[in-house]
């Protein structure tokens, strides 16, 4: 539930952090697996968010006086 609160930008930053970590650090296998799964989940989520947003193109709110 906590994760739901992350914004797109925060998720993107977290993903960058994960990639950076698994690429440049020697991590215990368990942690690597966890990060790897988390990273892949984030990629999936972010792609989905983008895709869903694209379906809403053309909508906007007009606020008159």
């Amino acid at each position: 539930m906590e994760e739901k609160k992350l914004t797109f930008e925060e998720k993107l930053n977290r993903l960058a952090e994960i990639v950076e970590k698994v690429e440049n650090e020697t991590l215990p296998l368990e942690e690597s697996i966890k990060l790897y799964e988390e990273g892949n989940a984030l990629i999936k989520e972010l792609n989905l968010t983008l895709k869903e947003a694209e379906d809403k193109i053309g909508q906007y709110k007009k606020i008159e006086k």
Partner: peptide, 19 residues
């Protein structure tokens, strides 16, 4: 962003493979 996501996916994959 999409390219970055694809890149991230590949980088994760590679890091995982090498580990």
């Amino acid at each position: 962003i999409k390219q970055m996501l694809d890149g991230a996916y590949e980088r994760l994959q590679e890091a995982w493979e090498s580990q």
